[in-house]
C-alpha cells in the first residue's frame, strides 16, 4: 500500500518532468507551498498518464530507449549501493562503472536520434532487486543483459529505415559482451551456455512484445506499447 502511494507520487512527478519541470523544482514548489500532505493530495488528484511508446521506427527506438533507461538506473544503483553492502573487487567496481556509462551513452544516443519523437522519461521500478546482495543483483543483471541483447537483435530486422541497422547492431554486440561478462562473474564458463545459445550457435532475437512482458515489471510508469512493431 505504502509502496503504491510512493509509486503514484513518483509517477506523477515523472509526468511533470516530461512536461518540462525538473523533479527537484516540482518538489521545491510543492514543498514550499504546502508541505508533504498537500503534495500527496495533489498527486492523487492527477493520476499518471499512460505513456505512448510510439509507432514504427520511433516505437522501436523508444522501446530500446526505455530499456536503456532501466539499465542505466539499475547500474547506477548497483554502483552507488553495492560496494557499501558487500566487498567488491576493484576490477568489478571498475567494470560496473563501465556498464553504467555504456548504458547512459546508449540511452543518450537513442534519445538524440529520436529527436522530437522521443517519449517522456519513464520511471524505472527496481523494487524487485536486492542491491545489498551480489548474487541477487547479478541474477537480475544477467536476465536484463541477455534480454537486452535479444531485444536489439529482434529490433534490427524490424526497422523500416535501414540506416538504423548499422549503429544498432554495433550496440547489440556490446550488450552481448556485457551479458557474457555478468554471466561469467557469477558462474564461470556460463557466458554463452545453452540458455542463450541454441544448437545452431544462434543467440536470441526477441520481439518487442516478448520483451515488454518482462521489462514492464521493471518500469513503474504506465505504458501503451501496443503500436511498437510486433
Amino acid at each position: 500500500m505504502a509502496n503504491n502511494t510512493e509509486k503514484d507520487i513518483l509517477n506523477t512527478l515523472d509526468s511533470q518532468l516530461s512536461k518540462g519541470y525538473s523533479r527537484r523544482n516540482f518538489l521545491q514548489l510543492a514543498g514550499g507551498v504546502a508541505g508533504a500532505g498537500l503534495l500527496l493530495a495533489s498527486c492523487r488528484r492527477t493520476p499518471p498518464d499512460s505513456y505512448f511508446v510510439g509507432v514504427g521506427d520511433a516505437g522501436l527506438l523508444n522501446y530500446l530507449y526505455m530499456f536503456e533507461t532501466v539499465m542505466a538506473a539499475f547500474y547506477t544503483r548497483s554502483y552507488e549501493q553495492g560496494p557499501a553492502y558487500y566487498s567488491m573487487t576493484l576490477s568489478e567496481l571498475e567494470l560496473l562503472a563501465d556498464l553504467r556509462d555504456h548504458q547512459l551513452i546508449h540511452k543518450e544516443f537513442l534519445k538524440q536520434i529520436l529527436g522530437r519523437d522521443v517519449m517522456g522519461e519513464i520511471l524505472p521500478d527496481l523494487s524487485a532487486i536486492t542491491f545489498a546482495d551480489r548474487t541477487n543483483t547479478l541474477t537480475h543483471a544477467i536476465a536484463l543483459e541477455d534480454m537486452l541483447t535479444g531485444a536489439y537483435a529482434g529490433a534490427l530486422t524490424r526497422f523500416t529505415d535501414t540506416t538504423y541497422v548499422a549503429p544498432i547492431s554495433k550496440i547489440m554486440t556490446v550488450q552481448a559482451r556485457h551479458a557474457a561478462y555478468v554471466r561469467d562473474i557469477l558462474t564461470a564458463n556460463s557466458f554463452a551456455d545453452s540458455v542463450v545459445v541454441d544448437s545452431n550457435g544462434f543467440g536470441q532475437a526477441l520481439s518487442p512484445q516478448e520483451v515488454m512482458a518482462t521489462l514492464k515489471t521493471y518500469i513503474a510508469t504506465h505504458l501503451d506499447y501496443s503500436k511498437v512493431p510486433a
Partner: peptide, 27 residues
C-alpha cells in the same frame, strides 16, 4: 537487410555469440 532466406537474422544471431566469446577471452 533484404533478409532473404533469413540470412540477416542468422548473421545477427551469430554476431552476438561471437561477442560473448570475445568477452570471455578478454575476461
Amino acid at each position: 537487410v533484404a533478409n532473404t532466406n533469413d540470412v540477416m537474422t542468422s548473421a545477427i544471431k551469430m554476431s552476438s555469440v561471437e561477442a560473448r566469446h570475445a568477452s570471455f577471452i578478454r575476461l
